[in-house]
């Protein structure tokens, strides 16, 4: 997708829906939360496309995704009867889908658990880099922090991850 044209909502869903789902799943460890987040992000994308001015599409999309995620966390914080993403470790338990999907989830369970142990800022930086595949500059644009801070968060996140995994 080029930066000089505005994609349609269908193109966004087709090209990015899976990555948004994986981003949300790796941040929350919960299929239902990931499901809700993708729906919310696509809704916001649909509303926002009309006013989108072509600059960095990925930066725009991931800012929306991140804001939707943080809004959801804040919303749940106001309603403590619902578990926070960090408190929900039912990895794969509620995940619908084919057997092979469940098997892959089980294989990555230890890594997923270690990711969920990281403080949010570090987890987010690691997931955006190593799961979504954004560059440091794209992460900086999406999160709204300097590239140097992105580098630091990714590095510290990886070190913490390694300590937890042994």
């Amino acid at each position: 997708m080029t930066d000089d044209s505005t994609p349609s909502w269908e193109e966004v869903a087709r090209h990015h829906g899976r990555k948004i789902y994986n981003f949300a799943y790796r941040l929350t460890g919960n299929a239902d939360d990931a499901h809700d987040l993708v729906q919310e992000v696509l809704l916001r994308v649909r509303r926002g496309l009309s006013s989108y001015t072509p600059t960095s599409f990925d930066g725009w999309l991931w800012r929306i995704t991140r804001n939707a995620f943080l809004d959801e966390v804040r919303r749940r914080n106001r309603r403590p009867t619902m578990p926070l993403p960090e408190d929900d470790r039912g990895i794969g338990a509620a995940a619908p889908g084919p057997e092979e999907v469940l098997a892959s989830i089980r294989l990555g369970e230890d890594v997923q658990r270690a990711l969920l142990d990281l403080p949010y800022d570090f987890r987010e930086a690691v997931v955006l880099c190593d799961v979504v595949g954004l560059s440091y500059e794209e992460i900086a644009g999406a999160v709204g922090i300097p590239v140097g801070t992105v580098r630091s968060r990714i590095h510290r996140g990886r070190k913490m991850l390694k300590e937890r995994l042994g």
């Binding site: 087709r14 994986n22 790796r26 990931a34 619908p96 999907v101 890594v111 990711l115 190593d130 390694k162």
Partner: peptide, 24 residues
């Protein structure tokens, strides 16, 4: 070598298929 290992395991996580019906 430590961070390369941590980076590798995260990158090796399977890419999950969104549940049927999530995308229109």
């Amino acid at each position: 070598s430590l961070i390369e290992s941590a980076r590798g395991v995260v990158r090796a996580l399977p890419s999950l298929e969104p549940p049927p019906g999530l995308l229109p």
